[in-house]
Design a protein around this nucleic acid. Structure first.
Lengths: 95, 95
DNA sequence: TTTATATTTAGTTAATCTTCTAAATATATG
DNA sequence: CATATATTTAGAAGATTAACTAAATATAAA
């Protein structure tokens, strides 16, 4: 779980997730949205993949990246447990 | 907003938030939950305060820390916008 | 098989982060 | 005022991170 938070700490990586929320993209298409060198983007993709925030799949010469909503949902639970919906139905973890 | 994600990237800081979710605590009480030196904890508190995830209030010799749910709620919105609730009512930001 | 395209891996450098100890500040009390 | 307690600030050391260039790998096509 700590890997997920660390992955989200970088603005470029958050931007990658936002791009993928709009649809699957190849590594090259993702890199085209940034000013940095391709190996740097590839490194960010590796960190996101390791945190399981994205999955990849080779298609010919390209590698297509997909957003993995499952991990984001687990993260939502972490926030939810702080009792963010006061007045509503609350979890009991921290009471 | 980037400050918030960076603040959450450290496990000690996330633990501090979880502790404060159980009720307000003084800096000393928070530090007592950790093995590290008090100045280190104080530094983490400063980062959380700068990200506005917590607020502080002096009470005599102690400084009491409170969790600030407002920023956590804004963060929830960021996650929500990825379309995490498929099938349900979705935001339109990324469509 | 040779060449071109797409992407990653390796290795390096500079910046940032976490932690520490020592010193400073603020408040309370004898 | 002097001393004790609570907390922060300052400065430094070591670890981690993000970026780059150059080289390697994998696929496709001539």
């Amino acid at each position: 779980m700590g890997d997920v938070f660390k992955a989200l700490a970088d603005p470029s990586r958050r931007r990658i997730l936002e791009l993928l929320a709009g649809g699957d993209l190849s590594a090259g298409e993702i890199a085209a949205h940034f000013d940095m060198a391709k190996p740097s983007v590839s490194h960010h993709l590796a960190i996101l993949r390791h945190a399981r925030l994205i999955t990849d799949e080779r298609q010919g010469q390209s590698i297509i990246y997909h957003l993995n909503l499952t991990v984001l949902q687990e993260l939502m639970k972490w926030f939810y447990d702080f009792g963010l919906l006061e007045g509503g139905s609350r979890h009991d973890k921290k009471d």
